[in-house]
């Protein structure tokens, strides 16, 4: 071993011009797990996967806009989504994706806090960055709380409680959804959380591409526009449903 000498880089005695030994050369595997960039790649990949999940989820939800005529169809769709094996596998991957995204985000935030132990007395971040880009953790936490409530309200009740059945013998999930969306506070909370999702996506969508190394004058403007559209349309699509159901049942 030529280089077994270990330096403490924070030691004031460390001479800057000394030749850096090779001991810290990273293997491919540790570079993809332990490095700062690796944590970001996983953040981006899980984030983009969850963006795809949002599209699928919204497509199913939009059938609710058809009103009472959608009852049997929606209930059959719910049964399919919770019993068809490939979908079940996909849903567990999604749960893992959400947890991974949240834990990875938390780890990154903690490391970033450590990187600045003393804060500035006077800060003016609004002149050089947008609000949502600086508050992804706060927005993500709001979304996570929403997901827990949302799972408790719909998924838990479907899986672990006895629900009335419809004409086809399927659990009446449509009825559960409509009952929930008759409550003003629930509709309000839902819409508010979709606003948080919109801001999260506004920064997150473009950011994922940047992290994975896609930034080019030719494509980046298009990616940013696509991200802007995605961050408006998807949360808007979700938010319209509780409002429409509430209005239809006034």
């Amino acid at each position: 071993m030529a280089n077994t000498l270990v330096h403490n880089f924070f030691d004031p005695k460390f001479v800057t011009l000394e030749i850096i030994p090779n001991y810290f050369k990273m293997s491919g595997a540790s570079a993809l797990i332990k490095s700062s960039l690796a944590k970001k790649y996983w953040m981006a990949l899980t984030g983009l996967f969850l963006c795809f999940f949002l599209i699928v989820h919204l497509a199913g939800n939009l059938t609710l806009l058809a009103g009472d005529s959608a009852r049997a169809g929606f209930n059959a769709y719910t049964k399919f989504m919770t019993s068809f094996v490939p979908i079940k596998v996909a849903s567990y991957i999604t749960y893992l994706g959400i947890l991974f995204h949240a834990v990875d985000g938390l780890l990154l935030t903690l490391k970033n806090r450590k990187a600045r132990p003393v804060k500035y007395a006077y800060e003016k971040p609004q002149v050089n960055s947008i609000w949502s880009s600086r508050n992804m953790g706060v927005l993500g936490t709001a979304i996570f709380v929403f997901i827990v409530l949302h799972m408790g309200n719909f998924w838990f009740r479907y899986k672990f409680t006895t629900l009335p059945t419809d004409v086809d013998g399927n659990f009446d999930m449509y009825g559960v959804v409509v009952e929930s969306f008759k409550m003003e506070w629930y509709v309000g909370l839902y819409v508010l959380c979709m606003a948080a999702l919109a801001f999260h996506l506004y920064h997150g969508f473009w950011s994922a591409f940047q992290t994975l190394g896609v930034n080019h004058p030719k494509y980046t403007p298009a990616i940013k526009k696509l991200g802007f559209g995605f961050s408006i349309l998807i949360p808007l699509g979700f938010a319209i449903i509780p409002i429409a159901v509430y209005v239809m049942n006034l």
């Binding site: 880089f9 850096i20 810290f24 050369k25 990273m26 570079a31 490095s35 700062s36 960039l37 944590k39 970001k40 990154l108 490391k111 970033n112 450590k114 990187a115 600045r116 971040p125 050089n128 960055s129 947008i130 880009s133 600086r134 992804m136 920064h203 473009w206 950011s207 940047q210 992290t211």
Partner: peptide, 16 residues
């Protein structure tokens, strides 16, 4: 990148 991590800098969150 490894040296950058060793020095204790934080992670980029693409705020720009």
């Amino acid at each position: 990148v490894k040296q950058m991590d060793l020095e204790g800098f934080g992670n980029c969150t693409n705020t720009g």
